[in-house]
Amino acid sequence: MKYSGSCHCGNVKFEVEGQLDGVMSCNCSMCQRKGALMWFVPRDALSLQTPEEKLATYTFNKHVIQHRFCPDCGIHPYGEGSDRQGNRMAAVNVRCLDDVAIESLAVKHVDGRSF
Rank of each mutant, 00 (worst) to 15 (best):
A101T: 07
V16L: 06
L20K: 12
S82R: 15
M24W: 10
V23M: 09
S114I: 09
P71T: 02
S104E: 15
C96E: 03
S104M: 04
P71E: 04
C9M: 05
N61D: 11
S25L: 07
R113C: 09
E80A: 07
T59Q: 15
R43E: 15
L48Y: 09
L37S: 10
K2Q: 13
H67L: 09
D21V: 01
K54Q: 11
F60G: 00
P71N: 05
G10L: 08
D83H: 04
R68F: 02
H67Q: 13
S47P: 00
H76I: 01
M30W: 03
C7F: 02
Q85G: 07
F115P: 00
C96G: 08
D21Y: 01
E80Q: 13
S104P: 01
E52Y: 09
A101G: 00
T59N: 08
V12K: 00
Y78S: 12
P71C: 06
G5C: 11
D98Q: 13
P77I: 04
C70I: 06
Y78I: 07
V64T: 15
K54A: 13
C31I: 06
V107F: 08
Q66Y: 06
Q32T: 04
S29P: 00
L48S: 11
D98E: 15
V64Q: 11
E15Q: 15
H67I: 02
V94D: 04
P77Q: 08
K54G: 01
N11L: 12
C26R: 05
M30R: 10
R113I: 01
L48P: 04
A36K: 03
L46P: 03
A36E: 08
R88Q: 14
V100Q: 03
M1T: 06
D98A: 12
H67E: 07
V23I: 10
S29L: 02
V16F: 04
K108M: 14
M89L: 14
L97V: 02
D21Q: 11
M89Y: 07
F40Y: 14
F60E: 02
R43Q: 14
A56Y: 00
P51R: 07
Q85F: 05
D99Q: 13
K54F: 08
R88W: 02
G5V: 03
L48H: 10
D44R: 14
